[in-house]
Design a protein around this nucleic acid. Structure first.
Lengths: 130, 130
DNA sequence: ATTTATGCAAATCATTTGCACATAG
DNA sequence: CTATGTGCAAATGATTTGCATAAAT
């Protein structure tokens, strides 16, 4: 399982870094501009691979398609319920959130995520423009 | 839009209450036992309807299919990364989590969710049985 | 009687997989 | 050379939708 450095993989990694919390579809669109022959499956495969290797982050929103993240450090997100866009939450990760839990009944907590949901500036504006 | 009280809707609501954070598929399986002719679309439509009306809760896990919840009060969940099952987290909901946030840059936070991820007792046992 | 709901099948959307061919190391 | 990766099309899984029919009110 020696990973190779293909042009396609590089393009996918670059796209994730250039875009802001893109979906696979958005990465595909961006990468297609540089290499119009690239297959969507290749984009998906490389997103999974880069995420597994810790080179990019993966965001699993409560709603909508997966998104990818150039940041790989622990942080939380805010999701706009109107447009689905993801934003970094301005909040330091909880140091030891497990201390907030009572008796889990034997459930081994390994990780946690916090998602804030609301309206991004653009979508909020639209709701007040009526 | 006067909602009707159909046998199917009752069965779906009962199944959500009888099961523990079931998926739509699990609700369908349970309801099929009482009414073998029920359509899967009817189950989905009623789950959505009951959730919209606040009669049941909906859990959107970071991974895996949506799940439904007899509890409708605010609470957090723990998800087993091995079997996908959802458990209630023994933790009081944060009173005002928005206070934990810095400047959101105009993002209007309306809600938040916390998901703990790990291994449930059963799946943890399996990992140590080797 | 009317309107809301159902069952079925087909459609949709995001993602993965099989396979023959291409290519990085 | 040979394992790893690619492009394509088909498969998958969860959920939604269109439509003719059924049943609550």
């Amino acid at each position: 399982m020696n990973r190779r450095n293909t042009k396609q993989r590089q393009l996918v990694a670059e796209a994730v870094r250039a875009l802001d919390h893109p979906s696979a579809e958005e990465v595909y669109a961006a990468v297609s501009r540089a290499d119009s022959c690239i297959g969507k499956a290749t984009v998906y495969r490389n997103l999974n691979l880069l995420a597994e290797q810790g080179e990019i982050g993966r965001v699993c929103p409560g709603e909508g398609a997966e998104r990818y993240d150039c940041r790989t450090d622990k942080h939380y997100h805010m999701r706009c319920r109107a447009c689905g866009k993801i934003f970094d939450a301005p909040m330091a990760p909880l140091f030891s959130p497990v201390q907030l839990l009572g008796d889990t009944g034997g459930f081994m907590v390994e990780d946690h995520n916090i998602e804030f949901v609301g309206l991004c500036p653009g979508c909020y504006k639209k709701t007040t423009e009526d």
